[in-house]
């Protein structure tokens, strides 16, 4: 059992949670994720890491209230309660080394967590770090203290409607930076549709891009093939061989399609859960 040590709202949809999982913090490196089960009957759900503190043995995560499991987690699990399973770290770490100017772009919850985690390590490795964090609007943006600012030499916050920070998407800001010749490598996470566009943009300019390929997972250890993708024409497992891949080699259309495999079942579970809470 893994004790929850902090929980805080990030915006109207996402929240921050910290749990004790020293076996994970001991080994975690940027690029890797964990799999959670909130209770014995729960689903195994993958989560990115915002920080892994070796001293306290605690993991920070950003979690979106998405469907049944994440609603349940927000509604019914508080500081002092425990999660049934935290497995990890899973996946392969990314290479932390001196690249020069490193940009991390993100426009959804998992990416925002990775943005901070990756740039922190990149800065320690002597890189010039640039963070671009995109949110839909002000209501769906995070408080200052949860942004990647402290670990970024340059930080941009954008909202798609301009209600906070720069108006626009990370793709717009990134394009400007590339044109000013300020980008040696891009890392990214968040919405799959944007990552596809990021792949196209960076390819055009011949800049390497390493991004999180989010796929529906079961075990997260390479045992089921649920997370398979086509990468350079070969079958790869996102959990075992990724989740961060060279964006230019990913077959994005298939990745995006496979993400909605269980939409019908997910809605059944969510509605049933909300009904049980008297919400609908």
């Amino acid at each position: 059992m893994y004790r929850i040590t902090a929980k805080e709202e990030l915006d109207v949809r996402d929240f921050f949670m910290e749990v004790e999982a020293p076996h994970v913090t001991k080994a975690w490196k940027p690029g890797q994720f964990v799999v959670l089960m909130i209770h014995e009957r729960g689903e195994r759900i993958p989560m990115s890491i915002y920080y892994a503190d070796r001293e306290t043995g605690r993991l920070g995560m950003f979690i979106r209230r998405h469907g049944k499991t994440t609603f349940d987690l927000w509604d019914n699990f508080n500081v002092g309660d425990s999660l049934y399973a935290v497995a990890g770290p899973l996946g392969k770490p990314i290479k932390i080394k001196h690249y020069g100017n490193v940009v991390f772009v993100s426009d959804a919850v998992c990416g925002q967590a990775e943005n901070y985690a990756t740039l922190k390590a990149m800065k320690e490795a002597g890189n010039y770090t640039i963070s671009i964090q995109t949110f839909e609007d002000k209501a769906h943006s995070y408080p200052e203290k949860f942004l990647a600012k402290p670990v970024a030499d340059e930080h941009y916050l954008t909202t798609e409607d301009g209600s906070r920070g720069i108006k626009g998407h990370y793709l717009d800001v990134l394009k400007g930076l590339i044109e000013k010749d300020k980008v040696d490598i891009v890392f990214g996470g968040g919405k799959l549709g944007s990552l596809k566009k990021l792949a196209e943009l960076t390819k055009e300019y011949g800049i390497p891009a390493i991004v999180t390929v989010r796929q529906i997972m079961v075990d997260g250890t390479g045992m089921c093939g649920s997370c398979r993708i086509l990468y350079d024409g070969e079958i790869r497992f996102a959990c075992r061989d990724g989740p961060m891949f060279d964006a230019h080699k990913v077959d994005w259309d298939d990745v995006i399609k496979r993400d909605s495999r269980f939409v019908r079942e997910q809605n059944i579970a969510k509605e049933r859960y909300l009904k049980s809470k008297g919400v609908v």
Binding site: R41, G42, E43, R44, K68, T69, V218, D219, M223, C224, G225, S226, F262, E265, Q266, I268, A269, R272
Partner: peptide, 21 residues
């Protein structure tokens, strides 16, 4: 493995009492 793991280990045959579909 995915099919059997969902059904056996995660008990999808009891969905939605169990969460895995």
């Amino acid at each position: 493995n995915e099919f059997l793991t969902r059904v056996n280990l995660m008990k999808a045959y009891k969905f939605p009492e169990y969460d895995t579909p």
